[in-house]
Amino acid sequence: MDWSLIFENTLKGFIGINAVYFALAALGLNVQFGYTGLLNFGQAGFMACGAYGLGMTAQYFEISMWWGIPLGILFSVGLGLLMGVPTLRLRADYLAIVTIAAAEIIRLVVRSVRFKHYFGGSDGINNFSRTFRDLGNKVGIDEASRYGFSPFRFTGRELWTLIVGWILVALLGFFVYTLMKSPWGRVLKAIREDEDAVRSLGKNVYSYKMQSLILGGILGTISGMIFALDRAAVQPDNYSRDVTFYILTALVLGGVARVSGSIIGPMIFWGIFTFLDNFMRQVADDPIRIGNFQVMDSTDVGPLNFILIGLTLILLMVFRPQGVFGDRKEMAFDGR
C-alpha cells in the first residue's frame, strides 16, 4: 500500500478541478435549494447548457469561442423558463419532478444519433479549448511546463484552469454572499420560510422564485463551462441525473444556505472521494481474502464509491439535514 501516493492524490482532489466545478454548481444549487427552498434536481441540465454552448460555438459557428459564454447562458435561461413556468406556482415537488425529467431529456437529445450533426452524439464535441489555453500561455503559464511543489504539482494546463476556476468561485461566492444580504436575498429566504406571508406583503413570489431558479441555473452553466474547458471535451454522459445528486450531497456536506458551505462542501466531498477511491483501488490490487471469499475486486470499487455517497446523503439527512457546518434553523422549512 502506497500511502504517500494516496495522500498526494487526496490533497490534489481537495483543491482540484472537480472541486471547482462542483463548488460553482453547488453555489447555484444553494441559491435555489438553500436560500429559496426550490428543489432543482436538474442542475446537470444547466451544466450541459454551458458546456454545449461553448462546444457548439467553437465547433460549428466559426466564431470566437468566447461567444459560447452568452450562448450557454441563453440556453440556461431558456431551460430555467421551461422548468419554472409550469411548476413554480405549484408545490415544491413538481419542480423536482420536472427538473429531473428535463435534465434527463436534454442528455438523451444531445447523445441521440438523430441530432448527432449538432451535438456530436455520444462522443460529444472535442478539442475546443485552444483559445482558452492560448490565453493561459499569454498570461505566462506555459501549458507544457510543470508548476508547484509536492504534493501540489500541476501541469501549466491544469494550473491555468484551476486559477481561473478558483477566481470565479471567489468572485461568484462573494457575489452570492452580498446578494443574499441584500433586500432581494432576504425576500428569497422569506419565501423559503413562508410563501404566503411574503405574498401578503405584496411581493410577486412567482417572479422571485423564477429569478432564483435562473440565477442558480446560470451558476450551474458557468460550472459546466469550466468543466468543459478543462476537459476540452463535452460528453453527454457527464451530465447524467446522478451528477446533480452528487452535487447535492457535496452541498449538504458543506452546509445548506451558506456560501462557505457550498465551497467547502465540494472540497471535502472530493477529498474524501479521491481518498476512498485510491484507497480501495489499492486494496483491490492486493485483495484481502477470508477463506474462499474475496473482500473486494477492482470492479467493485466504482459502485462501492457511489454506495458510500448514497449512504452519506442518507445519514446526513437523518442526523444533520442542515449539513455539517449549516445552521439548523435554515433547513426547518417544509415542502408542502
Partner: peptide, 24 residues
C-alpha cells in the same frame, strides 16, 4: 417530525445507494 424536503433528499440518497448495490 423531520420535514418532507429532507425526506425527499433522503430518498435520492437511497436511490443512489440501492442502484449501486444492484450494479455491484
Amino acid at each position: 417530525g423531520i420535514g418532507l424536503v429532507t425526506q425527499m433528499v433522503l430518498t435520492v440518497g437511497l436511490s443512489i445507494l440501492l442502484r449501486n448495490v444492484y450494479l455491484s
